[in-house]
Structures are given as structure tokens and as C-alpha cells.
């Protein structure tokens, strides 16, 4: 997994609540047996005017000019600013894969759906929860200032903006210690768990007495 330490990038505002994983990556793209290549189909049904299917040449498809990701001022965005309950719905890890493949590394929202939130950390994505009022301020700042950039520092757990960008932000965010550690180091969780193989065996031996029908 790719490490996440510190990043400065443009933030793109997706101003709607309950963005579900079907919207993030529609089901026809879930037929892939690979982990990569989902980026061009991120938000497919909002991003393009036609119906997307796997195998299409996305560069020739009609773009929806009204969709926020298609506006040139957000072309190089790597931070997604979102509303409540982002990532609700299906457990598909294809959703964080698509965001990551597109180039997004940070999502800032007032709340996330649990499974999506969890899946982000397995893929080097940093989901940040901030109070709704602060999210409102960020949306306003992004809309008001073209080229508005944020710096995300995971080590310091801070979000800042440059004074020159129009609005000044300097806020801290909370994050679970274990998740922060894994992201900072880019750790393989399976290897971490296998360090406790002996504990797992001890647990199993105990359970063989209590629930023998499961062994």
C-alpha cells in the first residue's frame, strides 16, 4: 500500500449528501477481476452523457460539462470535499479503487458510511471527518477561490491553506491511532495479523472445546 504523509492539492467540491458507492463506480464496472483501471469510470453516470460499459474508449465519450469533476478549474484535484454519509450502500472496494485510480487521495466529509470508510484505509486513501459547519466553510472557500489548495499533513493531523489562496484554514482532525500508523508507514495489515498467528491458534484450540461443531 502507498504511504500517505503530506500532500498539497486542489479540492473539488461534490455538493450532495448520501453519495452511494453505485454512484462512485456503477456496477457494470465491477465485473473486472483487476484492482486497477477504474479511474476513468469514477462517477460514470454523472460524468458522461452516454451509458458507460466496460471496454469503451472513455476518451471519445461525451462529457457532462455540468458535472463538477469535468470543470477545468478542478482538473488536477486530489482532494474530494463531500457531504454527509459519503460512500453509503454496497461494500464494493472498487469505490476507493476508482477514487485512488482517478488521483484522489483525501476525502473530507461530515460523515462517512462505515464500510467505505474502512475500505479507504486499505488503499492509501485518507477519509477525514470534520464538523458540518467547517465543511460548509470549506465549500464556500472552494467555490469562491479558483485554484484553492489545501495541505493535508497526516503526521500533524492538520489541514491548512495558504493565505494567498483567499481563505485561511488551519484545523486539526481526529484519526484512529492504528489507522494513522498504517497509512503513514504503508503497512500490510495481513502481515501484521500474522505476527499474532500463535494467539489465533490458542484461540482456536480453546474454541474447539466450546464450539466443536465449527471445527
Amino acid at each position: 500500500m502507498e504511504k500517505f504523509t503530506k500532500m498539497t492539492a486542489i479540492a473539488v467540491p461534490l455538493d450532495r449528501a448520501n453519495v452511494d458507492t453505485d454512484a462512485i463506480i456503477p456496477k457494470q464496472f465491477l465485473k473486472s477481476i483487476k484492482r486497477s483501471g477504474f479511474g476513468p469510470n469514477l462517477f460514470d453516470q454523472w460524468r458522461y452523457l452516454d451509458h458507460g460499459e466496460p471496454g469503451m474508449d472513455n476518451s471519445t465519450r461525451p462529457i457532462n460539462p455540468d458535472f463538477i469533476l469535468n470543470q477545468s478549474r478542478y482538473a488536477n484535484a486530489r482532494i474530494l470535499l463531500a457531504r454527509d454519509n459519503f460512500g453509503c450502500g454496497s461494500s464494493r472496494e472498487h469505490a476507493p479503487w476508482a477514487l485512488e485510480d482517478y488521483g484522489i487521495r483525501v476525502i473530507i466529509a461530515p460523515s462517512f458510511a462505515d464500510i467505505f470508510y474502512n475500505n479507504c484505509f486499505k488503499n492509501g486513501l485518507l477519509p477525514i471527518i470534520l464538523p458540518a459547519a467547517m465543511i460548509d466553510e470549506l465549500f464556500n472557500a472552494v467555490f469562491a477561490n479558483e485554484g484553492f489548495q489545501l495541505t493535508i499533513d497526516l503526521q500533524q493531523q492538520k489541514i491548512t491553506s495558504e493565505a494567498s489562496s483567499g481563505s485561511v484554514f488551519d484545523v486539526s482532525f481526529e484519526l484512529d491511532k492504528f489507522r494513522r500508523h498504517c497509512l503513514l508507514e504503508g503497512l500490510d495489515e495481513i502481515a501484521l495479523t500474522l505476527e499474532h498467528a500463535q494467539d489465533i491458534r490458542i484461540y482456536e484450540n480453546k474454541q474447539k472445546e466450546i464450539t466443536p461443531w465449527l471445527f
Binding site: 484492482r35 450502500g89 454496497s90 461494500s91 464494493r92 472496494e93 476507493p96 464500510i115 474502512n118 475500505n119 486499505k122 488503499n123 495489515e189 495481513i190 495479523t193 500474522l194 499474532h196 498467528a197 489465533i200 482456536e204
Partner: peptide
């Protein structure tokens, strides 16, 4: 699959996970 919550009907702790966790459970049972 997120609808794994279905199995909770049996007094079972059941929940949906992502693909990385599917691999984690295959490899470690945890």
C-alpha cells in the same frame, strides 16, 4: 457484500467487508 447483515437474524455477528478484508480473512481467519 454489504447485505451480509442478513445473517444477524440468527443471533450472529455478521457484516459486510471490502475485498482487502476478504483477503485478510482468507489468510488469517481474523
Amino acid at each position: 457484500d454489504s447485505h451480509t447483515s442478513t445473517h444477524g437474524a440468527f443471533g450472529t455477528l455478521a457484516f459486510g467487508i471490502g475485498t482487502s478484508e476478504v483477503e485478510h480473512v482468507l489468510a488469517t481467519q481474523c
